[in-house]
Design a binder for these strands. Structure first.
Lengths: 187, 187
DNA sequence: CGCGCGATTGAGTAATTTCAAATCTAGTGG
DNA sequence: CCACTAGATTTGAAATTACTCAATCGCGCG
C-alpha cells in the first residue's frame, strides 16, 4: 500500500525492525492535499506535525495589513507545523499552505509523545531532528543579522538550490524578508 | 559544595533521585569567568555546551568588517554554545563572551550523548529543551519578518524585561539587527 | 488570440545607515 | 566633595538602501 520512504527517513538516524516500524507507522495518518490548499489555518488548534512524503508547502504568517511572511518551507522528508503552537498545544498563529500537490503524514502531539515514551530511540530521533532544525534556523537568523539581501539569497541558493526551482520568487522574497521587487533587482 | 540549582533546573522537566542527579552532575565541569572574557572563540573546536548558573553571556558573530552580531543571550538557567558547531563537533563560527562575572557548567557533547543514552528521561529533557529553544527562535525569526524595529524591541522588552536591565543598549541593538543609533532614536 | 499570473522596471518616498560630534554616567583618585 | 576619564548613549546631517505604487513585460494555457 505504501513504500517505505518513511521507514528510510527514520533509518537515517535510528535502526528499526519491521514490527517496530509498522507500529510507529500506525500512528501516522495519510493526508492528500491539492496545490494551493491550507493544511492548517491561523486560529486552528494545532494537534499535528506533518512529515512530507511528496510535494512542497510553506508555513506563513499573515499580519494585520494582510502581508504574508514565510517562516518555513517543507519539501520531501521535511517536517512542518506551527511549532510554537504544536509544542504548547495551542492555536495556530501560522498557516500552512501547499505550493504543489502534496502527500503528507500527520502525527499528533499525543502520539508523538507516546512513541517517544515507548521507544527510547524514537525519543533520540526527535531530539536529533530538533537539534538540526535549531541549527538550521540559527544559521538563517545569523544570515539575517550579518548578510545583506544578496548574501541571504545566495546562501539560500547554495543550501537549497532545488527549492528555488519550485517556489515562486515572490514567496522566496518573503522568506528572505524583502519585497519581491527588491529580490527581482538583485542579479 | 554547591547548592542544587542545577538539580532544580532538571526537575522543572523530569524527576530525579539524588543518586541519579549526582551521577548526571558528575559530567559537568564548573567554570568561573570574569566579565568581558571569552568562554569560546571563533575557530575553537566546540566540545561543550554551557548551563549558566550565574551571570550573563552573549554568543556573537564577528563578520569580515569586524562588526559584531548577537545571535543569542544567556542568563541564569539558560544554555549557550555555538549550536551548529556543537552538534556537528566542528569549529566555532561564533564567539561567546561574558557580559558579567559568570559561573557556568560545561557539558561535553560526548557526555551529553552518554547521559541521554543512559537515562531515557534525560533524553526527554533535552528533547523538550530543544523544542522550546526552537519555538523561541522561530518567534524571533517571525518578529524579524513581520515587525518593524519598534515592534521587535517591544517584543524583547515584553519577553525578557530583566535582560534589558543588564545588557548595554548597543548589544541589544545588535541582537535586534539595527544600529545602536537607530535603537536610540526609538522612544 | 487573449487572459491571467508572475516577474521586472521605473520613479518617488520613507526608513536606516554611516560618520561625526556632543552629552551623559559611573567609577577613580586627589 | 570635586574633577577627570572611559565607556555608553544620544543627536545631527548626509548618503544609502529598500519600500511602495504603478506600469510593463513574458509566458503558459484555455
Amino acid at each position: 500500500m505504501d513504500d517505505d520512504q518513511l521507514k528510510k527517513h527514520f533509518e537515517e538516524i535510528i535502526a528499526l525492525t519491521n514490527d517496530e516500524y509498522e507500529y510507529i507507522r500506525s500512528h501516522f495518518k495519510r493526508r492528500i492535499i491539492k496545490r494551493k490548499r491550507y493544511l492548517l489555518q491561523a486560529g486552528d488548534k494545532v494537534t499535528n506535525t506533518f512529515w512530507v512524503k511528496k510535494g512542497l508547502l510553506v508555513a506563513c504568517y499573515h499580519d494585520e495589513s494582510g502581508k504574508e511572511h514565510v517562516v518555513q518551507f517543507a519539501m520531501e522528508n521535511w517536517w512542518i507545523t506551527d511549532y510554537p503552537a504544536y509544542f504548547s498545544q495551542g492555536n495556530a498563529t501560522l498557516s500552512i499552505e501547499s505550493i504543489e500537490d502534496c502527500e503528507v503524514y500527520a502525527l499528533s502531539f499525543d502520539d508523538r509523545e507516546k512513541i517517544c515514551k515507548e521507544f527510547h530511540k524514537v525519543e533520540y530521533f526527535f531530539r536529533k531532528k530538533a537539534n538540526s532544525g535549531y541549527a538550521a534556523l540559527q544559521r538563517r537568523m545569523l544570515s539575517f543579522l550579518s548578510d545583506d539581501i544578496k548574501g541571504r539569497y545566495e546562501l539560500l541558493l547554495k543550501q537549497y538550490p532545488a527549492l528555488l526551482q519550485r517556489v515562486p520568487k515572490s514567496i522566496v522574497a518573503s522568506y528572505l524578508g524583502v519585497s519581491r521587487e527588491t529580490l527581482s533587482r538583485l542579479h
